[in-house]
């Protein structure tokens, strides 16, 4: 369903992605591991449509549709979700209002009926309960005054509500203690199924103990240099990225 072919991208004239080939079939969870500066975050931003990156080659299709031609909001409505490495604070925007606006914008774009405040609240509370999060989460401004762990949990809450077909997790494990890591992982695992794929981008193997991937890819210097099963992650953990590069 996600098909990346020969993807090249640069930022401010500097080439970061140097020809990426990657395919994530529907229902699978793939991990992308790599050292700092290998292009992991760039890949997640390019897939979700952030401005400032120039695509200089290759293609990305999602369900057979050219993803790169779509606006960020169109990608979201098509089912692509990015869990941010650094979730953005939105002072003055209530979390409930934000979530409902996002959900309804996506429903509208897909020709579905919008949810009224009561319907939304019922749905949000159900997701919160599943994720063992407090209703307080809805009352606060988006990510404002949240701890690192709370911000990541809020990403998972958004993901659970928006129910994407493809979730890109950009170093969602960074800055998480083990309890938060567990909540985040449970949130992702709960969505796993034939209609859900995920691209889990991480520096460390430990997240992959909780979200066990179907495939692991190693991204270095803007290219996928190795792919394998879940045991590849353990190998990387034991031997480091240096051996892979050699």
């Amino acid at each position: 369903m996600l098909k990346i072919e020969g993807l090249k991208a640069e930022i401010e004239g500097k080439e970061i992605l140097k020809g990426i080939d990657l395919e994530v079939p529907m229902g699978e969870v793939h991990a992308i591991m790599g050292p700092n500066g290998s292009g992991k975050s760039t890949l997640s931003y390019v897939l979700s449509g952030r401005e400032g990156y120039e695509i200089t080659g290759g293609s990305v299709t999602f369900d057979g549709v050219d993803l790169l031609a779509m606006e960020p909001e169109e990608r979201a409505s098509a089912g692509v979700f990015l869990a941010f490495q650094y979730p953005v604070e939105l002072p003055g925007v209530g979390n409930a209002n934000f979530l409902r606006t996002a959900l309804n914008a996506q429903r509208r774009a897909r020709g579905e009926s919008e949810l009224d405040a009561m319907q939304f609240l019922k749905m949000a509370r159900a997701r919160l309960k599943e994720l063992q999060m407090s209703d307080e989460m809805l009352k606060r401004n988006v990510n404002v005054g949240f701890s690192g762990g709370e911000k990541k949990r809020n990403e998972v809450l958004q993901m659970a509500l928006l129910a994407p077909k493809l979730a890109i997790l950009d170093e969602t494990d960074s800055g998480l203690d083990i309890d938060a890591l567990k909540i985040v992982s449970d949130g992702v695992n709960a969505l796993r199924g034939p209609g859900f794929s995920s691209l889990v981008i991480t520096h460390y193997q430990r997240l992959l103990n909780h979200i066990v991937p179907d495939r692991v890819h190693v991204l270095m210097g803007g290219r996928i240099v190795r792919s394998g099963g879940k045991e590849l992650a353990l190998e990387l953990e034991a031997e480091g990225y240096g051996t892979i590069a050699a």
């Binding site: 909001e73 953005v88 774009a109």
Partner: peptide
């Protein structure tokens, strides 16, 4: 703030609404 704008759009909210 461009990053705030992108955050909203990445959730499906059209640019003008964001």
């Amino acid at each position: 703030d461009e990053s705030q704008l992108f955050y909203l759009r990445s959730r499906g909210i059209p640019a003008e609404e964001a």
